[in-house]
Nucleic acid binder design. Structure first.
Lengths: 131, 131
DNA sequence: CGGCTGTTTCGATGGCTGTCGAGCCAGACC
DNA sequence: GGTCTGGCTCGACAGCCATCGAAACAGCCG
């Protein structure tokens, strides 16, 4: 199983667990569910990775080259690569090599799923959103 | 400054940074923003804490006593207490002592804010939500 | 082919963190 | 007041993680 396949499997597994709408506040998460979800949150639980994610997501064309990302931080190349790998293994981004450079783009569907998990808990008791 | 005040300050600071809708995909997060947000995600980046959060959120009346939470896990009391503290310091929950027991409840507004940060990135490129 | 640039992997290291047991504080009850 | 129970703090320890330099790998270009 290649690296790519392994990551695909992670995403599929997570999608299976998260489903389209298993709200955090509707019923307690099982040990397995919380494990899958925690992996995603843990990946986002680092300032550098969060910035990387937003840099990629907000970049023109929806994708960003590693070379664009490295310059933003005072970190070594390997470190950035490490963080990108973590995001990749969490299913949050995908990387594709085109010639010399590697381009990363976000997986919006995963972000949407995570947001869905959070939202019902929010709108349930909070009239602030006032939708 | 008491424990309670300190936590209030954290929440206020976070609300200030996150605002009502600073979308992750609209523009790159600053170092400060990512730091604040990462703290919340890191708090949710643990299976036990995620389950605790969902247990509290989904509990009848919107609040749960520590005694209810301890039994669910094969963990010592201090460990549960530690995780609750992390969630508290991240602004995700609040604890209140009433007589013998301590009750915890979630802060829906923070969850809503976090979800908001995620969502625009999602709906931006994903027709799946089909709203 | 040989070198050059961009990116990743490897190994090591310092710091953070999840976990526990022991002990402490707060209320309740006698 | 004395004691009992629920919950928290403290200190310690093992495992994980962010970071780095060095080295390996992948394409380009001369």
């Amino acid at each position: 199983m290649s690296k790519q396949e392994a990551e695909e499997r992670v995403l599929a597994q997570l999608a299976d667990v998260v489903g389209c709408c298993s709200p955090l506040a509707r019923e307690p998460l099982s040990a397995e569910q919380s494990g899958e979800l925690a992996r995603v949150f843990k990946a986002m639980g680092d300032p550098v990775r969060l910035r990387l994610l937003s840099l990629i997501a907000s970049h023109a064309g929806g994708e960003a080259c590693v070379c664009d990302l490295t310059d933003v931080f005072d970190l070594s190349g390997p470190t950035i690569s490490h963080h990108l790998k973590v995001l990749r293994e969490a299913g949050l981004i995908t990387g594709e090599r085109r010639g010399t450079w590697v381009y990363y783009r976000v997986r919006p569907e995963l972000l949407a799923q995570v947001a869905t998990v959070l939202e019902p808990a929010a709108s349930d008791a909070l009239p602030v959103v006032d939708a």
